[in-house]
Simulated assay, not measured.
Amino acid sequence: MKRARVVVAHHAPEHAPIRVAKGDTVTLGERDIDWPDFVWTTLAQGIGGWIPSTLFDRESGEAVAQDDYDTRELDTEVGEILTLHREQAAWWWAENARGEQGWVPARAIEFIEENPA
Results as ranks from 00 to 15, higher is better:
Trp40Ile: 00
Val104Phe: 07
Glu14Leu: 11
Ala94Tyr: 03
Thr54Met: 02
Thr41Lys: 08
Gly29Thr: 01
Val78Ile: 14
Gln45Tyr: 08
Gly23Asp: 02
Asn115Lys: 15
Arg86Glu: 08
Glu113Asp: 14
Ser60Tyr: 03
Gly46Tyr: 01
Asp57Glu: 09
Gln101Phe: 11
Glu30Pro: 00
Ala117His: 10
Glu62Thr: 15
Val78Lys: 10
Pro13Cys: 02
Arg3Asn: 13
Ala4Ile: 03
Trp92Ser: 02
Gly48His: 07
Glu14Asp: 12
Phe111Lys: 02
Glu110Met: 14
Trp92Tyr: 13
Gly49His: 08
Arg19Asp: 06
Ala12Ser: 14
Ile81His: 04
Thr54Phe: 04
Glu80Ala: 06
Glu80Thr: 11
Val64Trp: 06
Arg86Lys: 14
Ile51Trp: 09
Arg19Trp: 00
Arg107Ile: 07
His10Leu: 10
Trp91Ile: 09
Thr41Val: 03
Gly79Val: 08
Trp92Asn: 05
Arg86His: 13
Ile18Phe: 01
Glu114Ser: 14
His11Gly: 13
Leu55Met: 06
Val20Ile: 12
Glu87Cys: 07
Ile112Met: 13
Ala16Ser: 12
Thr25Ile: 14
Arg31Trp: 04
Pro52Leu: 00
Ala63Asp: 14
Pro116Asn: 13
Glu62Gln: 12
Asp67Arg: 10
Thr83Arg: 11
Trp50Lys: 08
Asp32Ser: 11
Ile47Trp: 07
Thr27Met: 05
Val7Lys: 07
Phe38Val: 03
Leu84Trp: 02
Thr27Leu: 10
Ala106Tyr: 00
Tyr69Gln: 01
Pro17Leu: 06
Ala106Phe: 03
Ala21His: 09
Ala63Glu: 11
Val78Ser: 07
Arg58Asn: 12
Asp68Val: 09
Arg3Lys: 15
Thr27Lys: 06
Gly29Ile: 03
Glu59Pro: 01
Trp35Asn: 14
Ala12Gln: 12
Asn96Phe: 05
Pro116Ser: 11
Glu80Asn: 00
Thr54Trp: 02
Asp32Tyr: 07
Val6Asn: 00
Glu113Ile: 11
